[in-house]
Computed example of a mutant assay.
Amino acid sequence: MNTPDAQRPRSELLRRTVLVLVSVVIGLGLIEIGVRASSWTWLFAWPNYVLDARKVLAERDDGRSVHDDRLGYRPRPGYAAPGITIDGDGLRSTGAAPAGDKPPILAVGDSFTFGEEVGNTESWPADLQRITGRRVLNGGVSGYGFDQIVLRAEALAPLHRPGAIVVAFIADDIRRTEMRRMWSADKPYFDLEGDGLGLRNAPVPPRAPAETTLTFWQRTLGYSYAFDFLMRRLDLLHDWFGDHIRVHPAGLGERISCKLTARLAGLEKSSGAPVLLVAAYDPVVWDDPRFAAEQRRLTEGLLDCARRNGLATLDTYDAQAATPRPRDLYVLWHMNAAGNALMARLIAGALGDKGN
């Protein structure tokens, strides 16, 4: 039987715990008000920052992209914005088509191929067109994983009958093959299936409404300007604002991507167009040696798989490293006109007379 003396320590512990929790809540509240007051504007507006960010992304993507049952999404035919023109086939403009009857070169890849942060004629496919004098079809799509890039090549090659196919990637595209959703957009993915691959999440469902994608913490802490401020300073917004769903453990994407090079070899055989696999690099490679070492390992592994499957490859690292300041080849995240011009020269040299 509990005596009053035995109950007293418990009630005292409960009282102290409540006081601590109340103090913490009041302290956090004062920090929130203080940080908001420093900007003044946010003192009177209390949105959910995560939800707002995802809505803005959805509106942007819905404007320039259309849903695709097999790829997840692709550029919207006929879309136009300052510096960006998408033709009726969903390909980014590379400028006026050169004269001649040689078959075109098909370029596929992610945002580095599409040419984010530069105009139509400053992407590397546009530069490649000027160098070779052959029509180059820019089939790059921002945000694609290596799985989507391969599927895009398989979809475009029969339609355009290219004389050569250039498949470009960065190391992060390998990681993206481990995901079912990237940047709030569902995507296809592959499972290892025996000695091959099995396509999953196809047909790909449409984009989920932003309101349905928030976790408990994003629904609550998403309203905190102080927390948003902290995440920005720590450069952690990628995972906080990003709506990503992983289906494979980290590292499995390397095996999946390796097997996808066998599909590219099959495409080379069925289309008769030689395939060139090109490794590009994001700017952090030139800022962080540890990050660079891992990106190089991933890149070299995929290129080695491609060579074992009989594909031609090109690693642009050494050529970039040989420039006075490799970081000067970028705008913010993607290559600038000079960087894309270098890429085009390297690709033109690697292609040689292939596909004529």
Score class of each variant (00 low, 15 high):
210 A>V: 05
91 L>R: 06
285 V>I: 06
229 F>V: 03
274 P>Y: 08
213 T>A: 11
16 R>K: 14
190 F>D: 02
274 P>I: 04
177 T>C: 13
301 G>R: 06
158 P>A: 13
71 L>E: 06
247 V>M: 07
4 P>V: 06
252 L>Q: 15
145 G>D: 03
233 R>D: 03
68 D>C: 08
128 L>M: 06
57 L>P: 01
101 D>R: 11
7 Q>D: 15
324 P>T: 03
49 Y>G: 04
149 I>P: 03
201 N>D: 15
119 G>T: 09
232 R>N: 12
74 R>F: 10
284 V>R: 13
315 D>K: 08
284 V>N: 07
212 T>Q: 15
356 N>K: 13
114 F>E: 15
28 L>I: 00
270 S>Y: 05
263 R>T: 04
298 L>S: 14
9 P>H: 05
119 G>C: 01
204 V>G: 11
270 S>R: 15
248 H>L: 13
326 P>W: 03
70 R>G: 07
130 R>H: 05
314 L>K: 05
55 K>P: 01
282 D>N: 11
284 V>W: 05
236 L>C: 05
274 P>Q: 05
269 K>T: 14
250 A>W: 03
96 A>S: 13
291 F>P: 00
49 Y>D: 02
95 G>V: 04
224 S>G: 11
152 R>F: 02
133 G>P: 14
306 A>W: 02
340 N>H: 15
125 P>K: 03
198 G>V: 00
238 H>A: 14
183 W>I: 09
340 N>W: 00
356 N>T: 12
310 G>T: 05
262 A>H: 04
